[in-house]
Write a protein that binds this DNA or RNA. Structure first.
Length: 255
DNA sequence: ATGGCGGCTCGCAGCCGA
């Protein structure tokens, strides 16, 4: 099974790219973030024509998540039940015997801001949510835009980013809390090129200069991680006309 | 080469993202 996560930064703008990417890579399950589309306007027909079912939880302008899959999705759960939130950031579903949680973690704007406080509350709630999901579904994959660069090697310039939002210690501690529940960072199960990132600012030639961050992740529970055969970031998807500022992350499970 | 921000809206300027 091939699973993926991609912050598309507007599903409508990115739809031609997404359809082409699905055709080229044939993932079995894909978590999408920042769809920025209300459910009534979700392009389910176009995605069905590409061979994928979709479950989705969206809103206008901001946020929005979806899970696309070749096989039907069951036990769909929207939001974190214990954390009421107007933002559409969390969607979970079971596909092919594996539980998928799709996260669009808050950005946090700046350390100390109201949005940062919201992010920390959200991260703490997510720890409880994941603990509960893991109890219900031992075969659990958590994918998404985590908006956390877990370590200095996930940051193009660690000194520039030291203590900044996306790299601050409380955010990194939350990421470690999630790992401590029993998840592995699929990307780090394998040797990877140095300076591997999943997001590059649109400005200041960040992508050609590879000034990026690794903030999009796939976590695999201990029941799934041993079957992971590969994990990579598809940098090619960041090239060309009208790219998302994020690249997809893809993991392959065997057996 | 991979290219100088892009996507959104009670839009035409200002917001948000990371």
């Amino acid at each position: 099974m091939k699973l993926a996560t991609w912050n598309v930064n507007s599903l409508y703008i990115r739809l031609p790219r997404l359809i082409a990417w699905l055709a080229a890579h044939q993932p079995d399950v894909v978590g999408l973030q920042e769809t920025k589309v209300e459910d009534a306007r979700f392009p389910a027909l176009e995605i069905a024509a590409a061979g994928y079912q979709a479950v989705f939880l969206g809103q206008r302008t901001y946020n929005g998540v979806a899970i696309l899959s070749k096989l039907p999705a069951a036990d769909v759960l929207a939001d974190m039940p214990e954390f009421p939130d107007d933002h559409k950031r969390v969607l979970a579903a079971t596909v092919g015997g594996i539980r998928f949680v799709c996260f669009y973690v808050p950005n946090g704007q700046a350390v100390g801001s109201e949005k940062y406080q919201y992010k920390l509350r959200w991260l703490a709630a997510a720890t409880d949510y994941l603990r509960h999901e893991l109890q219900r579904f031992p075969r659990l994959a958590v994918v998404g835009d985590f908006n956390i660069a877990p370590e200095d090697r996930d940051v193009h310039d660690p000194e520039l980013w030291r203590g900044q939002v996306l790299a601050s210690e409380p955010e990194r501690a939350a990421f470690r809390d999630w790992q401590a529940l029993g998840f592995d960072d699929a990307f780090r199960l394998f040797e990877q090129p140095e300076k591997s990132f999943s997001w590059w600012d649109y400005r200041q030639l960040a992508f050609p200069k590879n000034r990026g961050l690794r903030i999009d992740h796939i976590l695999l529970s201990s029941a799934l991680a041993p079957s992971c055969r590969a994990c990579r970031i598809d940098r090619d998807a960041r090239k060309g006309d009208k790219p998302s500022d994020h690249a997809p992350v893809v993991a392959e499970l065997g057996g």
